[in-house]
Amino acid sequence: MPVVRLRGPLKSRAGNRSEHALEGGSVGELLLELERAQPAAQGWILDERGVLRRHINVFVNGELGSQDTPVDADGLVDVLPALSGGCR
């Protein structure tokens, strides 16, 4: 099962747990599943449209990905704030 890894405030919103094994075949599916499993994280990574927030980056097995990036059953997705978000 793929694992979504969180840190900082996102980890705090998700039961203070970093690693979350979830069902899904893409980054988007995994993040939706994360919201369902951890309601307190709802709206923090995806907005109401279900779109990845602009200044959140996702890395799939260490490579920068997107919401549509496929994730293997043993894949690892890191969710991190982007450098771009701190510009102001």
Partner: peptide, 8 residues
């Protein structure tokens, strides 16, 4: 309005 996590 967190630039990363949206408005709360």
């Amino acid at each position: 309005t967190s630039p990363f996590y949206g408005p709360k």
